[in-house]
Lab assay of single mutants.
Amino acid sequence: MTEYKLVVVGAGGVGKSALTIQLIQNHFVDEYDPTIEDSYRKQVVIDGETCLLDILDTAGQEEYSAMRDQYMRTGEGFLCVFAINNTKSFEDIHHYREQIKRVKDSEDVPMVLVGNKCDLPSRTVDTKQAQDLARSYGIPFIETSAKTRQGVDDAFYTLVREIRKHKEKMSKDGKKKKKKSKTKCVIM
């Protein structure tokens, strides 16, 4: 069974824990209790493949930012979460993405942009803004509501699919490099 290491990042209060708990335990946590770091595991079937999701729910508070490099190193894919009623959390996505790329030393890291709290009427981040940002990053965008469960499975499952595509691409690139290195030079 394939294991996928997913990391949920975003500013404090955007609903990272609520999304994760909704996926794992099928219930909505409405009281806000700032996370330092929590880890969850769940076995699911995605596109006919049974897999184990190892999900790291991270601290959004700035005082825990020193811990970010460590979990970013171990993560295979990242859910970059903002709240649709919090423009600052949307603007912060850029910083999370840049930090992930720096730590992973790669421009090509599996990510999904997630606009959470889409059940709320007080939207300050337009869907088109988020779609445009995701398009500019070359990553999928999904709106979710941890409260109603809308888009929750889709967000995590899409990230797994992005990781699969990335692994497939990397193995193809690896095979191309191996083929090239088999060419021999004969000096007579």
Rank of each mutant, 00 (worst) to 15 (best):
residue 170 M to E: 13
residue 111 M to D: 01
residue 176 K to E: 07
residue 103 V to I: 14
residue 182 K to M: 03
residue 103 V to A: 09
residue 30 D to A: 13
residue 132 D to C: 04
residue 111 M to C: 07
residue 52 L to S: 13
residue 136 S to G: 13
residue 172 K to I: 03
residue 113 L to E: 02
residue 44 V to T: 11
residue 46 I to T: 10
residue 186 V to S: 08
residue 71 Y to F: 06
residue 166 H to W: 08
residue 75 G to P: 04
residue 112 V to M: 11
residue 69 D to C: 04
residue 181 S to A: 06
residue 5 K to E: 10
residue 166 H to A: 08
residue 181 S to D: 10
residue 114 V to D: 02
residue 123 R to L: 09
residue 84 I to G: 15
residue 58 T to V: 03
residue 86 N to A: 07
residue 170 M to R: 14
residue 50 T to N: 13
residue 39 S to K: 15
residue 102 R to V: 05
residue 18 A to I: 04
residue 178 K to I: 11
residue 104 K to W: 13
residue 44 V to E: 09
residue 24 I to Q: 03
residue 81 V to R: 01
residue 9 V to Y: 04
residue 188 M to G: 10
residue 155 A to P: 06
residue 86 N to F: 02
residue 33 D to F: 01
residue 41 R to N: 04
residue 17 S to R: 00
residue 124 T to P: 08
residue 109 V to P: 05
residue 172 K to N: 10
residue 67 M to L: 08
residue 28 F to G: 00
residue 177 K to E: 10
residue 166 H to E: 09
residue 24 I to F: 04
residue 120 L to W: 09
residue 98 E to L: 03
residue 40 Y to Q: 00
residue 35 T to S: 01
residue 12 G to L: 05
residue 153 D to V: 07
residue 24 I to N: 04
residue 49 E to D: 09
residue 133 L to V: 10
residue 8 V to H: 02
residue 42 K to G: 08
residue 40 Y to T: 00
residue 58 T to I: 02
residue 109 V to M: 03
residue 34 P to Y: 02
residue 182 K to L: 04
residue 160 V to K: 14
residue 116 N to K: 00
residue 9 V to N: 03
residue 45 V to S: 12
residue 36 I to P: 00
residue 21 I to A: 04
residue 90 F to V: 11
residue 162 E to V: 04
residue 39 S to F: 09
residue 84 I to H: 13
residue 117 K to E: 12
residue 40 Y to L: 00
residue 111 M to W: 04
residue 46 I to N: 11
residue 106 S to P: 04
residue 97 R to A: 06
residue 21 I to H: 02
residue 39 S to Y: 13
residue 11 A to E: 14
residue 23 L to A: 15
residue 41 R to K: 04
residue 137 Y to E: 13
residue 138 G to W: 04
residue 37 E to L: 04
residue 27 H to D: 07
residue 21 I to G: 04
residue 44 V to A: 12
residue 183 T to W: 01
residue 55 I to C: 13
residue 11 A to C: 13
residue 114 V to N: 01
residue 44 V to L: 15
residue 161 R to Q: 03
residue 84 I to S: 12
residue 116 N to A: 14
residue 166 H to P: 04
residue 158 T to C: 12
residue 54 D to L: 05
residue 105 D to R: 06
residue 22 Q to P: 00
residue 127 T to E: 06
residue 187 I to A: 14
residue 157 Y to V: 11
residue 58 T to D: 00
residue 115 G to L: 12
residue 167 K to M: 09
residue 10 G to R: 01
residue 28 F to C: 02
residue 150 Q to T: 11
residue 132 D to Y: 05
residue 16 K to V: 00
residue 50 T to Q: 15
residue 154 D to P: 07
residue 182 K to G: 05
